[in-house]
C-alpha cells in the first residue's frame, strides 16, 4: 500500500482541522456548512456500508458478507459495543463460508 497516499490523506485531514481553528468565522456560510458537516459523513458511511457488503470489484453480489452485516445489525439493535458488532459480523460470515458453498 502507498506511503504517499498515507501521508497525503493525513496532511489533508490535519489542514482541514487547522483551517477550522484558524480561519476567521465570518468567511464561511455557517448554516450550509453546518448541515453539510452532519449530512456528508452520513452519505459517505452509508455508501461505504453498501459497497463494502454488496460489491465485488464492479459487480453487485449477495454473499456471506450480507449475512455478516445482518448479524451486525442485530447486534447493534441489542446495543452491543462496536467491537462485538464487528466480531459478530465476521464470525457469522466465516461460519457460513465454512459450512456452506457460499463465498
Amino acid at each position: 500500500m502507498s506511503w504517499a497516499g498515507v501521508l497525503a490523506v493525513s496532511a489533508i485531514a490535519y489542514l482541514t482541522k487547522l483551517a477550522g481553528i484558524a480561519i476567521p468565522q465570518h468567511v464561511l456560510d455557517k448554516t450550509y456548512i453546518a448541515k453539510l458537516a452532519v449530512l456528508l459523513p452520513t452519505s459517505l458511511l452509508a455508501a461505504l456500508t453498501a459497497v463494502q457488503v454488496f460489491a465485488a470489484e464492479t459487480s453487485l453480489v449477495l454473499d456471506a458478507r450480507a449475512a455478516g452485516l445482518a448479524a451486525g445489525v442485530v447486534a447493534y439493535k441489542l446495543r452491543a459495543p462496536f467491537i462485538v458488532i464487528v466480531i459478530t459480523a465476521a464470525a457469522v460470515a466465516a461460519l457460513l463460508r465454512a459450512v456452506s458453498g457460499i463465498n
Binding site: 452532519v38 449530512l39 459523513p41 452520513t42 458511511l45 452509508a46 461505504l48 456500508t49 463494502q52 457488503v53 456471506a64 458478507r65 449475512a67 455478516g68 452485516l69 448479524a71 451486525g72 445489525v73 447486534a75 447493534y76 462496536f82 458488532i85 464487528v86 466480531i87 459478530t88 459480523a89 465476521a90 464470525a91 457469522v92 460470515a93 466465516a94 461460519l95 463460508r97 465454512a98 463465498n103
Partner: peptide, 26 residues
C-alpha cells in the same frame, strides 16, 4: 476471508452510520 474480516468492515461502517440516522432527513 476465512475469518470474515471483510464482512467486519461493512458492519463497522454500519455501526458508525446508524447512530446518525436520527431524523427523516438523515
Amino acid at each position: 476471508e476465512v475469518f470474515g474480516l471483510d464482512a467486519a468492515i461493512g458492519a463497522g461502517f454500519f455501526a458508525l452510520v446508524a447512530p446518525r440516522l436520527t431524523s427523516t432527513k438523515t
